[in-house]
Design a binder for these strands. Structure first.
Ligand SMILES: [Mn+2]
Ligand SMILES: [Mn+2]
Ligand SMILES: [Mn+2]
Ligand SMILES: [Mn+2]
Lengths: 231, 231
DNA sequence: TACAAATGTTAGCCTACTCTAACAAAATAA
DNA sequence: TTATTTTGTTAGAGTAGGCTAACATTTGTA
């Protein structure tokens, strides 16, 4: 059984390597900075995690997750994002409030709890930030994320989140019939005033670019593993 | 901000004193035993909690919660029982599975989370063990708990839990239309075979004493603070 | 009342996690 | 290719929470 601290180191390493995409391994200072501890502190823990065969690490070298370390890290991320989804969907939290509480909830140990929560939420694929939720098997497909204004004309996409949280914006979102996991089709863009015509729930609306750039979407086509977010 | 450990000591003290009803204070060994630590360990913590003015304690004396200590302890109990209710009502946990996970969840720090959870569960009054859930204001009415077979003829009561968990029993409970918070009226008891005739949802059933003694109920009349459970 | 048993406290030690200060190695720039 | 900066490590120390062994106090009983 891992401690909260150990879990947080594994998660940090996952975020700094695989999730950020371009790197296979991370340095001690980098890990320390991410976790708000001093390099000396991180160094101790890295030695400990190496001992437990959860990471590969050699003195003065970079660190990376082993297969079992990665599996555990993904488990934590899964829990984090399921809890964020729960808070957002069921408890009326806003998308910017969920992360802090999920940082605590992600460490609750109970495989039954995770699986039942997943079921209760109807096996969600994206969390309120639009990040992919790993499945029970540890698979995580990562979407081509963009904002609604970046979507090409004539294509469909799915709303996965918002970038703004003002009540006026949210009320507008609601009025148009949009919410997470809703299908949106981009019908046209008006060259003159840049208004974007979309179809939601079979109804048509014209929205401003300002509105559209605060709607996070994922294109229908989803490709494997590669995201930028760290929540 | 209190640590998990400190919260557990306060909760232990609440359970050993107010909740068990007959005592105002608890001894060091007793507290240690309840928390599965050695008396020396408990002694250190009691000194620390006294320093923080959360308990009253004098060397070689018994300990008791101060007003602020009691308030915090009740907060933890509130969270514990709300989470148990959540697990039971929403995630299909059985009544004997909820406690262990709630022991972890009760330490999550977020007043918004607690309040929203309470609302989401529709402000439940009893947890799956039939224990009263303290309100947001820290009020906790404690019911006259008994089992269905102990209820007098002609009186109504409310189901607050079960004492058994076999699927055959649970299916029976379900078939009769019973669940937590359901009203039950005891119509009669057959002297010959001791069958109890009850009314649930306007329908009448006869149940055996064996069945009835595994149904936890609370009489309509509720009186202030005094329960025996420690979950 | 005196003594034994039960209860509570202290001292000393341990592990986990954190820090600062000093030092070593690696990477980069002159 | 040497010097400097960046990065990483070690040593020593602190806090929280836990333990054992020894000791002190209180309680209950003979
Ligand atoms: Mn997050
Ligand atoms: Mn997220
Ligand atoms: Mn419980
Ligand atoms: Mn309970």
């Amino acid at each position: 059984m891992l401690s909260f601290t150990e879990e947080n180191y594994l998660k940090a390493l996952l975020h700094l390597t695989i999730e950020t995409g371009d790197k296979e391994e991370a340095g001690t200072n980098e890990i320390a900075a991410h976790l708000n501890v001093k390099p000396a502190t991180a160094n101790d823990m890295l030695k400990k995690l190496k001992e437990k065969k959860l990471i590969d690490y050699e003195k003065y070298g970079k660190s990376s997750l082993t297969t079992s370390g990665r599996k555990l890290a993904i488990e934590v991320v899964r829990k984090h994002r399921l809890w964020e989804t729960f808070l957002y969907e069921k408890l009326e939290f806003t998308w910017d409030e969920v992360h802090e509480v999920a940082e605590q909830l992600e460490h609750i140990q109970s495989s039954k709890l995770v699986d039942k929560l997943d079921k209760f939420l109807n096996y969600p694929v994206f969390d309120p930030h639009g990040d992919a939720i790993p499945t029970a098997k540890g698979e995580m497909k990562v979407p081509l994320k963009k904002t609604l204004n970046e979507q090409e004309i004539g294509r469909s996409c799915m709303m996965i989140g918002v970038k703004e949280n003002s009540s006026s914006f949210l009320q507008y979102v609601d009025k148009v019939g949009l919410s997470i996991n809703k299908k949106i089709k981009v019908l046209s863009k008006q060259p003159y005033d840049e208004l974007i015509e979309i179809e939601v729930n079979g109804k048509r609306f014209s929205v401003s670019p300002k509105f559209a750039e605060n709607i996070l979407i994922v294109s229908e086509d989803v490709e494997p593993m590669n995201t930028k977010r760290k929540n």
